[in-house]
Computed example of a mutant assay.
Amino acid sequence: MSELQMRVSDDDRERTTLRLQHAFTEGRLTQLELEDRLELALTAKTYGDLLDLITDLPDEQPSVDDVIELEATHGNLKRSGDWAVPRRLRVSSKYGSVELDFSEAVVTHPVVDVELDLTYGSAKIILPDGGVANVDGFHSDYSNPKSAVPSRPRPGVLHVVVTGRSKYGGLVVRYPRKRWFAH
């Protein structure tokens, strides 16, 4: 079965409707075209159905708001809980560690690029269950990156692409730890 024949999720339909609405606000679609395409997007069954609705629109380029830079010299950087994730994160830390927890974050993009520039610190990235991460673009002089999650993109789940370097630190990518509660 080709990827175009795979069934879509509600999130996939929502992303396509947002893209169509954005194209309308830019003047690329008329009101009638928008209404027709929205109806088809909301009833789409496969990726091919959704792709047919947006192939004549330009690819979305990240805006300035879609790139966030986080920087620390001595302290640790941590993002967790309910936080808005941009398309691209540039993170630099000279002596501290970095923890990016995506498990409860609001992620509206299918792919998030994380660029790490670490000197003495390490980074930990926690993905929501089912998320995937490609760490092939991250290099450390001290250790190899460790990833306990799949690296191949999958439709409908978060895909994080990690690039950058660390001189003396490392990188760990994993899912959230399971919490066991006594009754």
Rank of each mutant, 00 (worst) to 15 (best):
V149E: 08
V112S: 10
V114Q: 02
S143F: 13
V107I: 11
Y142E: 12
I126S: 04
A148M: 13
S143G: 15
V112K: 03
G131Y: 03
V112G: 03
D129M: 11
V132E: 06
P150G: 08
V107H: 00
V149M: 11
D117H: 07
F138H: 03
S147D: 10
L118S: 03
Y120A: 05
D129E: 12
V112D: 11
H139V: 09
T119P: 02
P110I: 04
N134D: 14
S151T: 15
L127S: 01
K124M: 08
L118G: 02
K146H: 14
D136I: 08
V107P: 04
S140H: 00
G121E: 02
N134P: 10
L118A: 00
N134M: 07
V106W: 10
N144D: 13
V114F: 08
G137Y: 05
T119D: 08
G121A: 01
I125N: 00
V132H: 05
N134Y: 05
V106K: 11
H139C: 06
L118R: 00
V112L: 04
G137T: 10
P145M: 07
N134F: 07
D129I: 15
T119Q: 06
G137M: 06
D136N: 11
S147F: 13
H139D: 09
T108Q: 09
S147C: 10
V135S: 07
Y120N: 13
D129T: 15
H139A: 07
T119R: 02
P150Q: 07
P128L: 02
I125R: 02
V112P: 07
N144C: 13
F138C: 04
D141G: 12
Y142N: 12
V135F: 04
G131V: 09
T108C: 05
F138K: 02
G130A: 02
G137P: 07
L118I: 03
S143N: 15
L116V: 01
I126R: 02
V149D: 07
G130T: 09
